[in-house]
Nucleic acid binder design. Structure first.
Lengths: 203, 203
DNA sequence: GACAATATCTTGACGGTGTCAAGATTTGGA
DNA sequence: TCCAAATCTTGACACCGTCAAGATATTGTC
């Protein structure tokens, strides 16, 4: 469709999608504006009509990552609307899965690749929305006596941080083989989460 | 000393130190082999006599970071050899402080900048040694009934992961202002750690 | 001490990068 | 219809990592 017009039609999105693919295939180090442009079939500086600089494209890709993360989180959690314990379990695992299945996207979202997050409102908003979903689950767990009483947002940072830390260390190869030889990532994650859970443990 | 010889004398270390300074001043994005070389007073490809490539220099800088982290951790923990609870408290806070005072070093150590960690034995060893120190503290806490019984390495991953996750999110600006308006990073960290601690809370 | 092997460092080149300026082309609104 | 704005191309610039060739210093051996 619209194969060879001078104007692309939807270049901005095409660039984002091309960027996502290159990121997945070649990693953060392999992501260049020029490759993205070539993949989208335009000249090397066409992207500047839609993004003021490379950071801005990275922000857009990261934002897309957050939307996907939110969607997967929500999809994992929604089926258990009246079972907070399972919501916590499913949501946590969805987060870990997302990180492990989209290593490089996870990286640009969370690893300082984007230098001035605050400058990108869409990024901030999509990340805020994701956090809100976590807070929802935490609050439900508190109401059901699955998590201890505490300011929900504070507890949410704790839970999210726990997941985020473990999966980050795992992706970095920083988890000792002494541990990895004996436990799966799933076991490590749930072992950690269970420290926070009151009553019956997760699995 | 030895100001203008053709041979530098200790270029390898000079390059690492120059790299550390540039990293601290200009961030990961500003770290280039050529700048490092210039700062050390040598030509742009002199580094190749000591490092096969840029990744290798990054590995050396990261290794230095781990040594510093280990030193600070050890210094914080050692004074309380017979008070495991305070060891945990002091060690945890030292970790967080290191991350916040050396943002960019922390970044290259843990954020996927180094792509094949396994290829750098010194890096792996210095990171392993740091983890061992954490395990020591965790074991002492278990013996004293401060942390629950469990495989010490597994619990150590949990504790380390918790700290690492929270401080990583904080550095990325991912912690909601709703939380930051009400709690300091120290409060967030200890609130999280206290979920793991049996008996009297930390502070 | 002489000399060869080796380690260290310089110079120069290559392709790839982000970014900018100038100009071409297309689109949309007055 | 016509012009302003949006979009895209071409060409240039400085910077980057890396490599090859050669200069210079150090070290080990006789």
């Amino acid at each position: 469709m619209a194969s060879k017009k001078y104007h692309h039609g939807d270049l901005k999105n095409a660039l984002i999608q091309a960027g996502i693919k290159i990121l997945a295939k070649e990693g953060v180090g392999g992501l260049s504006l020029r490759k993205v442009a070539k993949k989208a079939g335009v000249s090397h500086s066409a992207p500047y009509a839609h993004f003021p600089d490379k950071q801005s494209l990275i922000a857009a890709i990261s934002t897309e990552g957050f939307k996907q993360l939110y969607a997967e989180l929500d999809a994992a959690v929604s089926p258990y609307a009246n079972d907070p314990r399972r919501q916590l379990e499913a949501g946590a695992w969805a987060y870990v899965q997302f990180a492990m299945n989209n290593t490089d996207t996870f990286n640009i979202m969370f690893s300082g690749v984007l230098e001035k997050e605050k400058d990108y409102p869409a990024f901030v908003e999509s990340s805020r929305k994701t956090f809100e979903r976590v807070v929802d689950v935490v609050r439900a767990c508190q109401d059901a006596g699955v998590l201890r009483p505490a300011p929900a947002e504070l507890l949410a940072v704790s839970v999210w941080g726990q997941l985020h830390g473990i999966v980050s260390l795992a992706l970095e190869g920083q988890i000792s083989h002494v541990v990895l030889d004996r436990f799966s990532v799933r076991e490590i994650v749930f072992s950690a989460l269970n420290q926070m859970v009151l009553g019956n443990p997760l699995s």
